[in-house]
């Protein structure tokens, strides 16, 4: 149970927030955006944090999920859940297809390849206007329905998005704690070293790449239904960068860091509304500052400082959480 302590703490925070602040904008509206971003970040963290591979094109997978759901439900009037499944399947195929050649690249070459992939996918969303709606986007995406229950209010979305996040975190935790997880950490440490210990790195890297793409695609499908409208701007290179920042801000290879990072970065434009002209400047400064002064991430840095306090709190919370 001990290794899931953090998970229960997270679940408790997520459950308590809307109970304490039921009509609060920052909880029920921004909370949904945070959960969706966090879900992608948790997946990206598996790749970046545990295999040490960077992806500057993860927004593309987010977009593939979103457009699969959007297109299939509007143009072909499919059931949203079927569309979601097909979206995941399509992402799986694409990720599996490009993973092998892409992951053979290292460092900067990998960065360029993922970046290029992201740009190509974005162009494919913009150009075929008659199918995707082009830059004006795709409207009238139907609401999601769970067992006859329409997900059409903020609080319901809060529940669904955060439920998805918890599911994602659970999967990630189990992956990290599995044999694959051990091997993963070996990859990050030293690839050649791990190889000598008989770890099939190639296969594991591909697997993790695909899993992390699926996280993004799943979040994308939810995003499409939650917004009811999608356009290529939401899946641009810029968003890929933001995702990387979320992971880094929280601390790579930290289990809950990416969630923290996603929360901070999603809240940033909401809280900086007074300094809108400075928003870009601040984002850049954060990226440089964290990497120079706190390379292990803000979350890890902070939680080490407040760890004694933190542990006490989770113990007192745990019985309530289950």
């Amino acid at each position: 149970m001990k290794r899931y302590r953090g998970f229960f703490a997270l679940a408790s925070i997520i459950t308590l927030a809307p109970i304490l602040f039921p009509v609060n904008y920052f909880v029920t509206v921004v909370g949904v955006s945070i959960a969706i971003n966090a879900l992608i970040a948790v997946g990206l963290n598996l790749l970046m944090g545990y295999t040490g591979q960077i992806s500057l094109g993860h927004a593309a997978f987010f977009g593939i999920g979103a457009y699969a759901s959007g297109l299939l439900t509007t143009l072909l009037s499919w059931n949203p859940w079927l569309a979601l499944l097909v979206g995941l399947l399509a992402t799986w195929l694409v990720a599996e297809l490009i993973a092998r050649p892409i992951l053979r690249l290292k460092g900067h070459y990998l960065a360029m390849a993922t970046l290029g992939f992201g740009i190509i996918i974005n162009i494919l969303m913009v150009q075929p206007t008659h199918i995707t709606g082009g830059p004006d986007g795709l409207s009238d995406i139907p609401v999601l329905n769970i067992l006859g229950w329409d997900i059409d209010s903020d609080i319901r979305w809060y529940i669904v998005a955060n439920g998805a996040l918890l599911l994602g975190v659970w999967v990630a935790l189990n992956l990290i704690n599995s044999r694959i997880g051990l091997a993963l950490r070996a990859v990050h440490g030293s690839e050649v070293g791990a190889q000598m210990m008989g770890v099939d790195i190639e296969k594991i890297k591909i697997k993790i790449f695909v899993v992390s793409a699926l996280f993004a695609a799943f979040a994308g499908s939810l995003f499409a239904h939650q917004q009811g409208f999608i356009s290529p701007d939401s899946f641009s290179f810029h968003f890929s960068i933001e995702l990387v920042v979320m992971v880094v801000l929280g601390g790579m290879a930290s289990k809950y860091g990416p969630i923290f990072g996603a929360a901070v970065l999603t809240m940033l434009p909401e809280t900086l509304v007074v300094f809108e002209d400075y928003e870009v400047l601040i984002l850049g400064a954060i990226m440089m500052g964290i990497m120079i002064f706190l390379p292990q991430g803000l979350w890890v840095g902070l939680s080490q400082k407040i760890k004694p306090l933190f542990i006490k709190k989770t113990i007192s919370v745990e019985p309530a959480g289950g």
Partner: peptide, 17 residues
């Protein structure tokens, strides 16, 4: 007033706000 930077995601949240 809120600044969207022409980003539809932000626009959605700011409209709700």
């Amino acid at each position: 007033h809120y600044d969207t930077g022409a980003n539809p995601k932000k626009a959605v949240n700011f409209a709700k706000r």
